[in-house]
Design a binder for these strands. Structure first.
Length: 518
DNA sequence: TCCAGTGGCCC
DNA sequence: GTACGGGCCACTGGAT
């Protein structure tokens, strides 16, 4: 790289507009260049203007936003040069257009103060990556392989049929046609779309599990999932130079403004079951001297609901640090708080989360293992106790109907054209209208925290790295000498990323692997 | 090689 | 007269 070009990129005050700032940052970083004064990223801007689109490539934007086609190269022109020139021009024209649209939408703040700086933070996070214990994963995989073939053999023996356990169709034939298990166990499995056939999903097999075959299938599926998706896949993503996994954290793939993770997805690493947790335990610090530190927001979405609704019961609960699930349990079961048992609390927890997603009685009855009528009762009593939350939902719906979009705390918009549709489409748009301000605001708060933490890590010349972001949790690969200062700084920044009606609370954990830290 | 359908992991 | 918001991915089985 010629020094004058490096100097230009780093110090020139000429406005810099790019397409895909995250990638640009990574490419320049590999050449030792840190660009200053970025004004726009057309990839991110295109997504902010329309989060429903699935395409943001330049060719598409040229036609969709600037209404024209690519120029055709004449014989005398090098086609590559033409494309480069046209791209540069397209990017500048898009910049002008998107600047106008984003300021009209009042989304300019989020764009400039969150999304653009975040691209550079994510660039670094991706480059650092995270280390896994491939040998441990390998040995668990071997163990599972044996158990899987045992299970497979067992099912074949019990059913007297050689078939592919991974095939839904073959399984349906064995369970429902050959063995007629739905009649034996007297349950009515739900139907699936194709050919009026009966489902073999977990929920259905659970109901049939007094019979050994469905029970073994469930066990087989659980192990097979872990083996195929995690144990065998994760090691293939380890980069040969760094020895780390470098997942892509995407800024332009969700409708609410959350981040997503792909190649591989590191935001769905198992945690629920004991077997699954063994996968999580294989995420380790980059060197044996380091530790992993996890920082997660406690109930951030419910706190955002409290903030928006200003519900007195909710606000008081958080101010006094009461247990919100117990409080809800006392409301829906109509008993004093000190008589709430674990079971009741866990059902109340489902109700609390159900409200965020506009869950209906049908679904609620399934997750709480109660009757539909009782689930209906829970919902009624919930809104009786927290009546401002009902009006909050109405407020979100009214805004969506009137303005045609849902918006977040800091001004990101999600357009909801289906809000005026009928039936299922409308129901889904309404769900999004209620959920987006909550989920999207939580995402924004986390993004603000990440940017600031990245900045502080750099200012403090700290060696610890931020390596994962999982919606309400951040994971750090930390040197032990910095652990105390890092915990303090991360907690401080996350809890004060924005000031709401209720305080935000962050729990910190540490350990030799992600499972221990979480 | 691609796609829809089914199923399943996470917050 | 049914439905929980947001993601990514493995596998089957059929079409290309």
């Amino acid at each position: 790289m010629r020094p004058e070009i490096k100097n230009f990129l780093e110090n020139s005050s000429i406005s810099k507009v790019v397409y895909d700032l995250k990638k640009t940052t990574q490419v320049l970083d590999s050449m030792g260049i840190r660009m200053q004064g970025i004004l726009g990223d057309m990839l991110v801007a295109a997504h902010m203007v329309d989060s429903l689109s699935r395409r943001y490539d330049l060719d598409y934007l040229l036609g969709r936003r600037l209404n024209r086609e690519r120029m055709k190269a004449e014989k005398s022109v090098d086609p590559d040069v033409l494309v480069s020139c046209e791209n540069a021009s397209t990017i500048l024209e898009l910049h002008e257009l998107f600047e106008k649209q984003l300021s009209q939408n009042e989304s300019n703040e989020v764009y400039r103060n969150i999304e653009i700086p975040l691209s550079e933070t994510l660039a670094r996070l991706e480059m650092d990556g995270v280390k896994i214990d491939t040998e441990k994963l390998g040995s668990i995989s071997k163990e599972f392989e044996e158990r899987l073939s045992e299970l497979s053999e067992r099912v074949q023996n019990l059913s007297g049929e050689m078939f592919n356990l991974n095939s839904v169709v073959e399984l349906q034939n064995v369970l429902y046609e050959k063995l007629r298990l739905h009649e034996v166990c007297k349950v009515k499995p739900k139907k699936i779309k194709l050919g009026n056939r009966m489902s073999t999903d977990e929920e259905t097999l659970e109901k049939l599990s007094e019979h050994p075959i469905p029970r073994s299938i469930l066990e087989y599926r659980a192990l097979n999932k872990l083996k195929n998706t995690y144990l065998d896949q994760l090691p293939t993503y380890v980069h040969k130079n760094s020895g780390h996994i470098h997942s892509r954290f995407q800024q332009t793939s969700t409708a609410t403004g959350r981040l997503s993770s792909e190649h591989p997805n590191l935001q769905n690493i198992p945690v629920r079951t004991a077997e699954g947790r063994r996968v999580r335990a294989a995420f380790i610090p980059s060197t044996p001297e380091r530790i992993l530190l996890s920082a997660d927001y406690s109930q951030i979405e419910l706190r955002i609901v409290a903030h928006y609704s200003k519900d007195p019961t909710f606000l008081e609960a958080y101010r006094k640090n009461l247990d919100i699930h117990t409080l809800t349990a006392s409301a829906i079961f109509k008993i004093p708080e000190n008589q709430v048992d674990r079971e009741m609390r866990s059902k109340a927890k489902e109700v609390n989360f159900g409200l965020i997603y506009r869950m209906g009685p049908e679904r609620l009855s399934i997750v709480t293992h109660t009757s539909k009528a009782e689930a209906q009762e829970f919902i009624a009593r919930f809104f009786e106790k927290y009546n401002t939350i009902h009006s909050l939902q109405e407020r979100f719906l009214a805004q969506a109907r009137k303005e045609g979009y849902a918006s977040t705390l800091l001004g990101r918009r999600r357009y909801l054209p289906d809000i005026h549709a009928k039936g299922l489409l409308k129901r889904m748009a309404e769900g999004a209208a209620v959920n987006t301000p909550i989920q999207g605001s939580a995402a924004e708060i986390m993004k603000l925290a990440m940017i600031k933490i990245d900045q502080k890590l750099e200012e403090g010349k700290m060696e610890s790295r931020m390596v994962l972001t999982v919606h309400d949790e951040l994971v750090f690969d930390a040197v032990q000498e910095e652990e105390k200062e890092l915990s303090r700084m991360v907690k401080e920044v996350m809890e004060n990323a924005v000031i709401l009606e209720v305080a935000l609370k962050v729990d910190i954990g540490r350990g030799k692997n992600w499972l221990e830290a979480h």
